[in-house]
Write a protein that binds this DNA or RNA. Structure first.
Lengths: 337, 337
DNA sequence: CTGAAAGCGCTAACAG
DNA sequence: CTGTTAGCGCTTTCAG
């Protein structure tokens, strides 16, 4: 049915090896021969059979990206960046959604689907430090996120503590002293929530501002509705605060909404900062000051690291950790009058 | 290196055919043999080589989804739904971003990447009716969206006209008569903008309300900022309106923000409706009334149609068109006091 | 019910 | 510079 190397070879009057050489840009082919082969390829509309090539070469040309779910904007934007980065190095991306479920994440690590790709970029949410050993797999793997540190693989992520400290310092520099937190996770140490809370505390300590449990609002999930609920709870506690640090943008956006509904002016009465620099942070009312955690850089480095491991698997270099550059993006929600 | 059928066969003391039979759930295998083989598989940690299987079977187990970009929430949520639907039928999904660029879309249709997948679900944005013939490809293809109709392939999309008419009728039923449009496209006939505008006009006609070009705002793109800009322009025209129909949610959200900044109350002074039922529509201030275009159904049917074409390519059935069920989702932005 | 053997389309030694 | 040939690991007739 489909046209093969043999067909092209026959049409061009050469052997299949020569056709193969032309296709793979093998240098030592006479220009005239090359031209003849290319013509035959064009005429017959030959396209290499990628499965055969994979079987032979052991490379598929695809990498997998596993993440919780695309309908969470952060991950959609991450996927966008990863696909772009992969495209630059000639790889396609298979996306697998885990729903942040630990069992599914664990399964996925040893699923036979792995055989379909050259490597995996993995952003777990359900797994924790105790599962680190499970990352010691036999294929190229790059870890994303803050669920597991010091694991057996390359790890690319953001400077959560530093960035959260910077965000808090930024609010303090604007004269805010009572900075509420939305989205903390009870007792968490690593994980985005734990790390960002730690950065917050560091900034408080450095400024000599006491930490007040009363203005910390906990949520399990980080959707906009959780931010809204957390803020309602905060308001019902009847405590004082003059700023809110949403541990991510959607939380901040949800909290900001409730704040405004309750009659507070943002940033007049309360200034608000988020974390992630989602597209939508730019268009909220008021637009949201936030932390750009370096998503594009994370994607770029993750793909590059993975490709290095794919291309030179023998290089048993120690696991590498890369922390992307962050920056505060100032917008209206923290503007000073 | 990796363990193959031969290794398993040797370990279990059977031939590779028997192992293959076990793996593929071929019925006529003696239970004892089956057990022995399964044990060997478990011990050796055998995983089938998917490339070899693909080469042999002609099926890859992957489908491609081509869309403009994941950072547009509508497409992220569509991708989410498609991945879930594909998973249910045992397929993985490769996502390709076109940026809505016609050239890239055209290229992608004949790229050798197609060989890596069993079929393509394609949501073009740059291509138009004139390019319909280009969809006549030799592999299973399902078209999404409203750029091309009556093309040579199966097509799954939403009831744009009906849904837009329903949205408009809904506003009219609440007593609104001066319904502004945000996001129209100059001279467009098909395409989401063209079709939704047509539904709007039909509702107006049916209600005997004159169409007024003065309250139609055009934009090229459909980002939130375009909705904001369009609304500013509308306000600067100094015309009267008591409702806004954003041709999608992000436009509506952007317009709603400007409206509120300008001191209008939503829905008090102006009620606002969107289209798409994005997650974020649920959490805006006020929450946004919108049209759920049946995204989950679209994904489900698209995958199912594609699989049918993949599994029975000989069935040269005529191209099918499926229009998903829509519904109005009532929220605060159109609440009547 | 199970085994032997052919071959999917390609790449890479190895010859020439 | 180009041709021959041997598999990559699997599925699948076809025998037994």
């Amino acid at each position: 049915m489909s046209v093969t190397l043999h067909d092209v070879a026959r049409a061009a009057g050469v052997s299949i090896k020569t056709v193969s050489n032309v296709i793979n840009d093998y240098p030592h082919v006479r220009p005239a021969t090359r031209a003849r082969v290319n013509e035959a390829i064009g005429e017959l509309g030959y396209q290499p059979n990628l499965s055969a090539r994979s079987l032979r070469s052991g490379r598929t040309g695809a990498i997998a990206l596993a993440l919780p779910e695309l309908s969470l904007s952060y991950f959609a934007e991450l996927a966008d960046s990863v696909i772009r980065a992969a495209e630059r190095v000639g790889q396609v991306v298979i996306i697998e959604q885990t729903g942040g479920d630990r069992e599914r994440e664990l399964q996925l690590l040893s699923s036979s689907q792995r055989k379909m790709t050259d490597g995996l970029i993995f952003s777990p949410l359900g797994m924790g430090m105790d599962d680190a050993a499970r990352l010691d797999v036999s294929y190229p793997l790059v870890l994303l996120g803050e669920r597991i540190f010091d694991g057996p693989t390359d790890h690319v992520t953001m400077r959560n503590i530093d960035a959260a400290r910077a965000a808090t310092e930024y609010l303090i520099s604007q004269g805010r002293r009572r900075i509420a937190i939305v989205g903390a996770h009870e007792g968490e140490v690593v994980g985005s929530a734990g790390l960002r809370l730690r950065g917050y505390r560091e900034a408080l300590d450095a400024a000599g501002i006491p930490f007040d449990e009363q203005i910390i609002a906990y949520t399990t999930l980080w959707h906009r509705s959780n931010g809204a609920t957390a803020m309602r709870e905060l308001l019902s506690r009847d405590v004082d605060f003059d700023a809110v640090f949403g541990l991510n943008d959607t939380l901040a956006l949800g909290a900001m909404r409730v704040l405004q509904e309750a009659g507070y002016r943002v940033p007049g009465d309360v200034s608000v900062i988020g974390f992630d620099d989602l597209d939508e942070a730019m268009y909220s009312l008021p637009s949201l000051t936030t932390v750009d955690p370096g998503r594009a850089e994370i994607a770029e480095i993750a793909v590059r690291s993975l490709m290095e491991r794919i291309e030179t698997p023998q290089a048993v270099e120690a696991p590498r950790l890369h922390l992307a550059q962050f920056r505060i993006v100032e917008r209206e929600s923290t503007a000073t009058a």
